[in-house]
Design a binder for these strands. Sequence first.
DNA 1: ACATGATAATTGTCGGACAATCCGACAATC
DNA 2: GATTGTCGGATTGTCCGACAATTATCATGT
Lengths: 239, 239
Amino acid sequence: MFEPLDTAPAYLRLSAAIRARILGRELGEGDSLPTETELARQFAVNRSTVREALRNLQSAGLVERRGGGKKLYVSRPAVGAVGEGLREALTLHEARFADVWEALLALEPAVAAAAARRRDAAQLAALERLAEDFGSRELPATEAVALVGQFFRALGVASGNPVFVLANEPLVQLVEPSLAIIIDRLPQARRRIAGAQRAMVAAIRARDRAGAADWMRRHVEDFRRGFEQAGFPLETVVG
Amino acid sequence: MFEPLDTAPAYLRLSAAIRARILGRELGEGDSLPTETELARQFAVNRSTVREALRNLQSAGLVERRGGGKKLYVSRPAVGAVGEGLREALTLHEARFADVWEALLALEPAVAAAAARRRDAAQLAALERLAEDFGSRELPATEAVALVGQFFRALGVASGNPVFVLANEPLVQLVEPSLAIIIDRLPQARRRIAGAQRAMVAAIRARDRAGAADWMRRHVEDFRRGFEQAGFPLETVVG
DNA sequence: ACATGATAATTGTCGGACAATCCGACAATC
DNA sequence: GATTGTCGGATTGTCCGACAATTATCATGT
């Protein structure tokens, strides 16, 4: 009979208004927003209210301040930040290693296949350099893991699919700590990872989609085995 | 010799501090936070600063107010909200239909397979009811599409994998508008969707993982064909 | 054209204020 | 007994005004 009234606080309605303008492309990436005082004047609210609304947009990644400056710019949400939010969400939802692994097994072969199909020369070169770096040097675990993470991110970029790039990120972030432990405890882990990376890069260079996906599958399965052999149950909650 | 000082604004350090406590499980879901005045006192900052920090946590979904109340409670980020943020991010990254479809093709068969393996009786019943609802009634496009969305969400839940649940959400949200148009323009769309849902439910009931994945693959491929037949190029930017 | 320094604008933070609303307890009513 | 009214206190949403620190702007001299 009656519809609920819109009693949303002003700061929410304000951020919703600006958000709509950004998503509706009226404000494009790189455009700068008016100053807080000016926004307060235009929306006829207090500057404190404006600031609360801006914090909202800021943590959604829709606006940002560049390099310590004062001006606010419209921005597309950074992949790293979005991934971190997702990682937090998954942590609080108590995702287990088995869950993340299952997602990796579904996603990464497809990413590798897409990369094999669509990578350009520069992206291939980046992958080759990362694989070479990992394979040739005996870095400390933390740095080695960072390289593996970079390899996966580079794969995402090479896939040319922003959905893959975004989906990749939280999984990589969640997996990195476990991987560090595995590399520390299992002497053969480095060799196996290096081998898989080399094989994937070769398949991607040859534009061999099935090969890239296959090697990725083995790589991900190896990862699960490593996790178990390092003494962790698959039910371990990540994060 | 000297470490860089932490010059981040107070409201950021404050939200980081609370965030860390939540992620570190010192504050569990459902716990209530002190009042703003009390937080201001404890952190020795002004209440306005506290409020900016809280807006930050609020939009990350780490705290919420329940049902128009005043108390703040620690919460795990709601799937819908996280998905919406991701949808926005993908929209601003100009993901094309082809990209979303590629991700669906990688993800959904795995979700269906996991659901076939792990679903319990109640989850199966929910899927059956949704499929039955969709197949038996000739609802207007918007409601029909909502039912399809519910079917995918229920699949995610039945998969027992929070990663799948979360990854599902933005894809479903992005796809729903396109699907509404397809259903409107292609007379055979309803029948094909109903058929696929029935087949998937049957496979999931029989715990036939390969069958479920297979039917899902056909279903997703059908969806792409429908999109093209409805007159859209795959490069259409979603959102 | 380019560095430089003065000047104006802007942000981050603060203190205080007040109405609206929610909460809990208690009383009144059906 | 359950719903409804009432009342004081606590809390939030919003406003105002202020100020130091930092950044942007611009005229100026080289």
